[in-house]
Nucleic acid binder design. Structure first.
Lengths: 121, 121
DNA sequence: ACGAGGGTTCACACCGCGTTCACGGTCGGT
DNA sequence: ACCGACCGTGAACGCGGTGTGAACCCTCGT
């Protein structure tokens, strides 16, 4: 299923809180700093977890790099900073390792990234 | 910047705002550079997106090549410039891939293009 | 003091974007 | 039928943004 209508459930429900976010086969548990993907527990570092959360909170929507950075790193994005790219890569690896054949984080060049579980082409 | 949601009545008055444009199964989100067609997210480049927006803002009407060019590329259309043709083609491909059996951008030879979702002949 | 793990930066490879060129097809006018 | 104007479409190319592995630090627990 490739529909992007699953944002409603999480949007208004959790301000920024500790409520678990569930999207397709992905479940994110803020209280535990843990993600469960396709039934498998995925260990994430703090940065990785916050990045995934920031994206998943706005599942189906493109999140600008600026916004991602200020949301996860808490400051303005310095030009030349590649931290986001590196961490997107790390999170991608772990998610796809837990659920092969699926892609979760999509690049929108010049804009940012979009979280949306889809079967790979 | 926070966008107010109380501009409903002024929808038609703000053609190039950040308000999403919805026509048939096509939804265009200016703030994200993203289009959603038949429930599928369609990744568009900046040019592709602006072209689609320019056409969709005047859905059902023929938009002259001159006007399209100045609206998307921001200058006068040099004779021999084929950029419009190339990008119309790219956008067509992506839209029709997301919604097979439908055509969205129609050619009006000597005039320009018209956006209007229609089942294919 | 030492090792381990996480975060940041660097360097290089790669790919998508935007532009332009080239070739073909269609349509009208002559 | 020929020609020219116009459009469809694939491909080449330079460039900037992104992917990715590895080095480099910093912090913390032992």
């Amino acid at each position: 299923m490739i529909v992007s209508t699953q944002t409603r459930a999480a949007d208004a429900a959790s301000p920024d809180g500790d409520e678990p976010i569930r999207i397709a086969q992905v479940e994110i548990r803020p209280s535990e700093g843990l993600a469960v993907v396709a039934g498998r527990a995925v260990a994430l570092s703090v940065r990785e977890f916050e990045l995934l959360s920031a994206l998943a909170r706005r599942s189906g929507h493109v999140v600008a790099r600026e916004e991602l950075f200020s949301s996860v790193w808490g400051g303005p994005l310095r030009s030349g900073d590649r931290s986001i790219d590196v961490y997107v890569h790390k999170v991608r690896q772990k998610l796809e390792a837990a659920s092969p054949g699926w892609s979760f984080i999509h690049t929108h060049i010049g804009f940012g990234y979009r979280f949306s579980p889809e079967p790979m082409a």
